[in-house]
Amino acid sequence: MNLKGKWTITVVMGIVCFVLIAVMFMQFKTVNQTDITSIEIMRESELRSELASWKSKYEDVQEKVEENNERIEEYKQGTEDNVKATQLLEEELNQAKTSLGLTDVVGEGVVVTLEDNDTPPDYYSEDDVYDGRINVYDILQLINELKLAGAEAISINDIRVVDKTDIAWVMDTYIVVDGVRISSPYVVKAIGNQTALESGLMQKDSGYMDKIINAEDKKATVQRENEIEIYKYDKDWDTKYIQEN
């Protein structure tokens, strides 16, 4: 009995010790890994008041955020309108530029080639005077005819012809366009309705081609083309004397 009693005591004490120490160290581990103190101090009522204050703060911040968002929307609208206005202005500007000839353009039209001709045709006799050179009046007349036929852009040897363009005849020999000398062959490009342009030039007896080829025996050809590139007028266009009325 005594031995059994002692044995019981020993075992029970062992178990008790084990449980106590084990639980103690588990608790140590738990406390070590969670920062209890700050939350533990607060009781329910404190937590409630904290929560309420945080809630009201949050709502305030929410309101401010909404206000700011609205303002951002307004500014966006403002800039959108601004952007539209700028776009319209830009479009107008581009159109004006194109019409003036300040932009490179491409389109269908005709290409008229005039060439200086040295050899007279067969039926000329030696006494007849033959001047096969293209002179400035030929070119001016051609340009006028093209405009009449509805050409929207014209260039001679890739020099853009605009309202302001002058074509001069220096010493009766050289043709100078806007200060740039050009020589044969003279390639005149014109963008417009192909049919209108061609037929305008090819009219029998009164059209330009007939007059220049048949009446003066000069070398000239007209050709339709679909993608004619005409470069822009690249000189300065300053006005000193005209003013807005």
Binding site: M13, G14, V16, C17, L20, A22, M24, M26, K29
Partner: peptide
């Protein structure tokens, strides 16, 4: 017995899972 119990408790407690907070 007491010492053995303590040592075993130490080993178990340190390596055992954490108690829910």
């Amino acid at each position: 017995a007491i010492v053995v119990g303590c040592v075993l408790g130490l080993i178990f407690g340190i390596n055992a899972p954490i108690i829910p907070y």
